[in-house]
């Protein structure tokens, strides 16, 4: 790396630190109100998606029984005819008021930013999830996007692996998770 402008060593070091962060697959920064974290992903090659970016802000640490505000922001990169946001809480988390949260939007031009704040109440400690589903019609084409928003509750580990699973290492040193040998009969619709 060649630094050719008149920057201080401090700035140079800041850049190097940022490069180190980019080497990681994940990037989380703290922004907005103190204690609120916004996480963004890095540049691997993922599957195709609707032209939507879902970001969120949540308190970094929470306790059982807290009313937790979760702000969900949807950036839409193309014109859309309609859009629907649905939020569903997983085990250990309850939406307030109860039931799925739903919100629909009419057509908007490119670069629309839509923001909603929902409230959840945890009933147990751990890393709990609020699932957000966004579906829409973009230039006549139906597409969707989904995001699980994690919330840290209490002082227990953030790891979510079930107790029945075991983390071990294979013969080549790769970390693997051994799953319980059970089959579910839930129907796949595809």
């Amino acid at each position: 790396m060649k630094i050719t402008d008149k920057r201080s060593f401090k700035k140079h070091w800041l850049w190097l630190s940022m490069v180190c962060l980019l080497v990681l697959s994940w990037q989380c920064v703290f922004a907005g109100e103190p204690g609120f974290a916004i996480c963004k992903k890095m540049s691997y090659k993922g599957k195709p998606s609707a032209p939507i970016s879902i970001s969120y802000s949540v308190p970094a640490q929470n306790s059982v029984g807290d009313s937790i505000p979760v702000t969900i922001t949807i950036q839409v990169l193309s014109d859309f005819d309609s859009l629907k946001l649905e939020a569903i809480a997983e085990e250990g988390l309850r939406l307030l008021p109860s039931g799925p949260y739903e919100r629909s939007y009419g057509s908007r031009p490119r670069n629309a930013a839509l923001s909603e704040t929902v409230t959840v109440i945890p009933s147990q400690e751990g890393r709990l999830y609020l699932n957000v589903f966004v579906t829409g019609v973009f230039n006549g084409k139906k597409m969707g996007h989904t995001r699980s928003i994690p919330l840290n509750v209490g002082t227990t580990s953030a790891k979510t692996l079930k107790k029945s699973n075991q983390v071990t290492t294979d013969s080549k040193g790769q970390k693997i998770v051994i799953m319980p040998a059970e089959e579910k009969t839930t129907e796949k619709t595809k």
Binding site: Y44, K45, G46, S148, A158, T160, K162, M179
Partner: peptide, 25 residues
Amino acid sequence: WSINNRPAIGDPSAGEIDTSHYNPP
């Protein structure tokens, strides 16, 4: 692949892999 792999951003070893993807490095 795991039944715990979900579209969350965080710790991939806990299943928080964001989306199905290829990681070049």
